[in-house]
Each structure stands twice: as C-alpha cells, then as structure tokens.
Simulated scan of single mutants.
Amino acid sequence: MTVLSRFEKKVIIVTGGGSGIGQAVVRRLVAEGGIVTAVDVNEDGLKAGAKQAENIAVAGGRYSFMVGSVSSEESVKKIVQDVVDQEGRLDALINVAGILRSKKTTETSLEEFMEPINVNLIGTFLFCREALPHLTKTKGNIVNTASTSAQYGHPYMAGYAASKGGVEAMTKALAREYMKEGVRVNAVAPGGINTPLKEGQNDRMGGLDVSLFSHLVRPDYVCGEPDDVASVFAMLASADGSFMTGEIVKVDGGVHN
C-alpha cells in the first residue's frame, strides 16, 4: 500500500465496513489519517477491523464502529447523527454495504428479489439522504458502490443487478442535484472481487461460474482483491478526485472493455 495522508482530520462513514471491500476501504482510509466510523450488521467483522486499524493508523488516523442495518431508517438516522455529534462534522460517506442473491429468476420469490433492493439501493439512499445536509457544510463527497452487473448481462442476479442499476442512476442524479452546493457524488463498479459476498455464488447458481464469461474474454483473468478496489474508493473520496462527479468508475481487470 502506498503511504499517503489524504484524509488527515477528515471524518468518514463507511457502510459495509465489517468485511470484504468495505473493510479494505476502512483500512485504506485509516492508514491515510482518516477518522473513520465503520457500519455493519457484522459485529465480529467490525471488531476484527479495529485490530487491523490499530496496526496501520498514522497521521491521526482513528477507527470506530457502529452496529446497525443500512435498511433501517431509524438506525441510519441515529448513526449519521451520532457521528456528527461525536466528531463535529462529516467529510465523506462511502456506501459499500450490500448483499448478493443468485438464483434463477423464475424460482425467485418477491421477498428474495427485494432483499438486495432493500440493502443495496434503499440503504444507499437512506445514508445519502441523512449525510447530505452535513456534507453540504463541509463541501464533502459520497462514493457509492455500483457493479458491472448493472451494465452487462450477468445471469441469475436480476434483483442484485436491478439494485445496482438503481445505485448508478441515483449517483448521477445526486451529482447533478448537489453540484452547485459543492458536493461530489461518484460510484465504483467492481467486477469479480474475492469477498465473502462472492463465496458460494457458484453453488447458488447450480454450478454455473459467472467468471466463465470473464475467461472467454481474457483467458488469464483472475478475480481482484478488495485492496484493488479500495484504492479507487480512496482516490474518489480524496482531493485527487476533486474534478470528478457523477462518474461510475469500473474496476474489473479489463474484462468488460
């Protein structure tokens, strides 16, 4: 990891910070001096993140966590307000929390279809809505998590793809809505990344490996790692991304080019 200090004295909320990409983003921001609050329903993962943060915090970097569901309006309101009350400001919101459901569409119940909608899309909306009044004061920014599934044909994930398509559309709408107020809103669209979200995916799809489509394009393709994506989140959330808003940045190893 390149040692930088782009987030000194910056207060940041990261949802989904208990595992995978979210946990990698937290590590990156704390290592660069950020004052980071990680949010997740996975308390064990959040506690593990605390141990990681102790070893990498520099330049005033600090880690704390709050257990809560991103799809609970009451929980989201409390988390955002508690962070602002404790730290006095909010400089960035990074929405990573998400779930994946892989299943043949004709076998998918409405409840199963709505699960990723409620977490991935509604959860992102709720945190954006609650954070924006504070971000307008600091001229801060938001980085959401989209997915290549929203842009390309990934089978067996209609609900997931729909939720991520909604995140992309909302990201662009918010970027336009808050441009004059100095708030940037972007999103990262990862491809195949080795995270707990991906584990067991092939089994859920009856043995069909989505990465098969990647290998058809690029025979040497392997899934990326969370740190490969965390660096892009950090760039967008920092001053290095100051002239970017409304962008969906694809991070997929070139598979969908």
Rank of each mutant, 00 (worst) to 15 (best):
Q81D: 15
M114C: 11
R184A: 02
Y160E: 07
V67E: 11
S75L: 05
A50S: 13
E181H: 12
P190I: 06
F113S: 09
C128Y: 05
E225F: 08
L236G: 06
K198I: 14
A230I: 01
K180C: 08
A50V: 10
V188P: 11
L29S: 04
A92I: 01
N55Y: 00
P196C: 09
N42I: 10
G182T: 00
A161P: 08
I56C: 06
P219G: 07
V249G: 00
N95V: 03
N42D: 15
F125T: 07
L121S: 10
L46M: 05
V41D: 02
K77T: 11
K78A: 14
N144S: 11
A131Q: 00
D85A: 14
V67Y: 04
G17N: 05
V70N: 04
V11P: 01
D227G: 02
I79V: 14
N42C: 08
P226H: 10
E32P: 02
I122P: 02
F127N: 05
D220C: 01
V3W: 04
I142T: 02
M244I: 14
C223H: 12
H256R: 12
I94G: 06
I122A: 10
V26T: 07
K164H: 10
S109F: 11
E87M: 10
F7S: 01
T106D: 13
A53V: 05
G20K: 10
A173G: 12
S75M: 05
T37K: 01
L46Q: 02
P226Y: 06
E247F: 06
V232K: 03
N55I: 01
G16H: 07
L132F: 09
D220G: 01
P219N: 06
M205C: 13
S69A: 13
T106Q: 14
Q81C: 07
R101F: 13
E74R: 12
Q52G: 02
H215C: 09
L90T: 00
I248M: 05
A187H: 09
G22H: 07
Q81K: 15
M235K: 11
F125W: 12
L121T: 08
A161L: 09
I35W: 07
S5Y: 13
T108E: 13
R27N: 14
V14A: 10
I99S: 10
S71Y: 11
K51W: 01
P226R: 08
L135C: 00
M157P: 08
S64N: 12
P219F: 11
V11M: 01
K78D: 10
A189V: 05
K47S: 05
G22D: 03
Q151G: 03
T145Y: 08
K78G: 01
E32G: 02
A239E: 15
A24S: 13
C128S: 12
A169G: 09
V26S: 01
L126D: 04
P226K: 10
P155S: 11
T171F: 07
K164L: 08
T148F: 06
G16S: 04
I94D: 02
T105S: 15
A92H: 00
K104C: 04
D85S: 13
T2D: 10
E107T: 14
E43T: 08
S64F: 02
R176Y: 13
S72K: 03
S163R: 13
V58R: 15
K250Y: 09
D228R: 02
V222N: 09
Y152Q: 13
L197A: 12
A24Y: 06
A173M: 12
